[in-house]
């Protein structure tokens, strides 16, 4: 029992360290990729190819004045960024990140908490993640903030429905909520991937995943052109940074979910071992998010709701119906 606890604590710390480092690295990657797509070089001068820009940004964030507006509710204002970051990492707890491997003679299962309802737990935690932006917007005495949190509420609530319904069809196929079962179901090559059986569910999940991580076509919560920075208007320094660590961690989580549920997870692919296969898949999804950001414009809030309730949700329900009839 104590061994289990120690192992879990070590795993949690390792996951936290690696993913938050990756989240920081994600900002660098995002700037670089967006720059390349716009035929620019991006950050170049801090370190080789600008890679130490992360460190520079980190130092800047840590040393910035930690500012709390006088009218704000101080406690909630301070808690809100923690909620975003924490829920993003808690969601990762139920995600099997890599296949099992041996280290110093111990079999390591790279999943912090192997729940048999892993998928549901991840969705639930990402749903709870809406409290970060929501409370942040309400706690600061700022109209942009309150508009941002109103948009958070509608966007997360609506797209949670689509996420859930789109994942329901693969769940019906696999008959389990455990992400490891999903992975094992798709063992044995590309032909067994669920994406071929559930292409519609895959597309719906991607769209709603973009909405839940508030990536570009749907980043209405902090759309600079309309509402300054939305819920993050009054934040500065590391509190602001927490929101973005949470956002990038969520992007990674969505990447993992999409690859585990639809794209064969960490099963070996041709000659590529499973661990590298899933890293490649997650990197592809991360790249896709940046790629889409560079290509597509924002949509209006009413279009967001139109898309969710009049297009995606009916499609998801029809998809479930067809899956139920066929399977």
């Amino acid at each position: 029992m104590s061994g289990f606890i120690i192992a879990t604590v070590i795993k949690a710390i390792v996951v936290l360290a690696i993913i938050s480092a990756l989240a920081g690295f994600g900002t660098y990657i995002e700037r670089k990729i967006l720059a390349f797509i716009q035929r620019r070089l991006g950050p170049m001068h801090v370190g080789p190819y600008g890679i130490l820009q992360i460190a520079a940004d980190g130092i800047k964030l840590f040393t910035k004045e930690d500012f709390i507006p006088s009218g704000a509710n101080r406690l909630i204002f301070k808690i809100a960024p923690l909620i975003t970051a924490a829920t993003a990492f808690i969601a990762l707890a139920a995600v099997p990140l890599l296949p099992e491997f041996h280290l110093f003679g111990i079999t390591v299962r790279p999943i912090v908490a192997d729940l048999n309802i892993g998928l549901l737990f991840v969705i639930a935690m990402m749903g709870v993640g809406l409290y970060g932006p929501l409370l942040a917007g309400m706690a600061q005495e700022n109209k942009w903030g309150i508009i941002g949190s109103a948009r958070t509420a509608i966007q997360f609530l609506s797209y949670e429905v689509v996420t859930g319904l789109s994942l329901l069809a693969p769940i019906m196929l696999v008959g389990s909520l455990s992400l490891i079962d999903f992975n094992n179901y798709q063992a044995g090559g590309i032909a067994n991937w669920i994406v071929w059986k559930q292409p519609l569910a895959f597309i719906l999940f991607l769209i709603s995943g973009f909405a839940e991580t508030n990536r570009t076509p749907f980043d209405l919560l902090e759309n600079e052109a309309e509402i300054i920075a939305g819920y993050a208007t009054e934040y500065s320094g590391m509190r602001w940074g927490m929101f973005f660590i949470g956002e990038y961690a969520n992007m990674i989580t969505i990447g993992f979910l999409a690859s585990l549920v639809f794209l064969g997870g960490f099963n070996p692919l041709w000659i590529i071992p499973g661990a590298i296969a899933i890293v490649l898949k997650v990197s592809f999804f991360f790249f896709l998010m940046l790629w889409v950001r560079s290509a597509w414009p924002h949509i209006r809030p009413d279009q967001l709701m139109w898309l969710c309730w009049k297009v995606l949700m009916p499609l998801a329900v029809i998809n479930i119906l067809i899956t139920g009839l066929v399977a």
Binding site: I117, L120, A124, G127, V128, L135, S149, A150, A153, G164
Partner: peptide
């Protein structure tokens, strides 16, 4: 586990967010 997750999704994720709204 299932009920726990449903509690998270329904009460914390949806109903409380509507209150907040």
């Amino acid at each position: 586990d299932f009920l726990g997750a449903v509690q998270l999704v329904v009460y914390s994720g949806a109903i409380m967010a509507l209150y907040a709204f």
